[in-house]
Design a binder for these strands. Structure first.
Length: 274
DNA sequence: CGGTGGACCTGCTGGC
DNA sequence: TGCCAGCAGGTCCACC
């Protein structure tokens, strides 16, 4: 669920509340998500202060005063909330980091596809999950030239390519469909056949869509919540995702759904050219 | 190396 | 009304 805009929304909210706070207690209610929850390493963060909150790709990085970094990935259904002292934990609230103001940073994840790690700051680049990540989509490094050069002779569908975190990070299933619609590119098109100009259009559109989604607090389909529990407003801006059979906002043709790389993909058969 | 398909996990829903 | 197959925002690994 959470793609770059959702993670950025969470990071921005945590950045307001967490720095300066100390962790006073750690409570884990299940052993593992995608991988085991490193309970011992988390307990070593007790009495350490949080000094900053960052985002890299779809990962949240919470910097601690002793040089450790708490790394959190939300998977498909992960959410982080600041829970009050009196809010009891629900069925899928797997981890509480209690803070020195009495609130708890509470991690919930029904499907347990998320990931929680503690990493030393100087070793961050060597962590497998983070070491191989591509440029940030909103950075100048993610440019038309970069995209064009990287995609030559590649036969995979352009939608697979933009969702590949080794090419560009942060684009997931929703924003891939939305970006391709706004770029008028058919998702199944072999990425290596796109002209430089169409690559430029797509790159600029990805930046635009992600920026708009960040500005509106992300997209809530069902699980995603901002840190205060409210929903992201970008769901109202979706033009093709989840709109099978509804008229295209440009031409009125029904939006079609297909499967690419095992993921549902939405597009307008009239507006989006191969 | 590039590309594809299944596995991981739980909950909700659409269609019969 | 009730049941269950199918599907869900993301990786990750095995296999061709």
């Amino acid at each position: 669920m959470p793609e770059l805009p959702e993670v950025e929304t969470v990071a921005a909210a945590l950045r307001i509340h967490l720095p300066g706070r100390e962790i006073t207690r750690v409570t884990a209610r299940c052993d593992r998500l995608r991988r085991p929850i490193p309970l011992e390493a988390l307990q070593n963060l007790i009495n350490k202060a949080i000094v900053g909150v960052r985002r890299r790709a779809k990962y949240l990085l919470i910097d601690m005063s002793d040089g450790e970094i708490l790394v959190i990935h939300l998977g498909m259904t992960g959410t982080l909330r600041l829970a009050g002292r009196d809010e009891s934990a629900g069925r899928h609230d797997h981890l509480d980091l209690e803070l020195d103001d009495g609130r708890s940073l509470r991690y919930r994840d029904p499907r347990k596809f998320g990931l929680i790690m503690v990493v030393r700051a100087q070793a961050l680049g060597e962590v497998a999950e983070l070491g191989a990540l591509a440029p940030e989509p909103l950075s100048p490094e993610f440019s038309a030239d970069y995209f064009y050069n990287l995609s030559r002779k590649r036969t995979t569908a352009v939608k697979n390519f933009i969702m590949d975190q080794r090419r560009v990070v942060g684009v997931g299933n929703i924003y891939a469909s939305e970006s391709l619609f706004r770029s008028r590119i058919r998702p199944t098109t072999a990425v290596g056949t796109l002209s430089l100009e169409r690559c430029r259009k797509l790159v600029n559109t990805i930046k635009e869509v992600l920026s708009e989604a960040i500005a509106t607090g992300g997209t809530t389909i069902s699980d995603f919540r901002q840190v205060d529990g409210s929903e992201g407003a970008f769901a109202r801006e979706l033009q093709v995702y989840g709109r099978t059979g509804e008229p295209c906002i440009i031409c009125g043709q029904p939006i079609e759904k297909t499967v690419i790389g095992g993921r549902s993909t939405f597009y307008c058969p009239q507006c989006q050219k191969r």
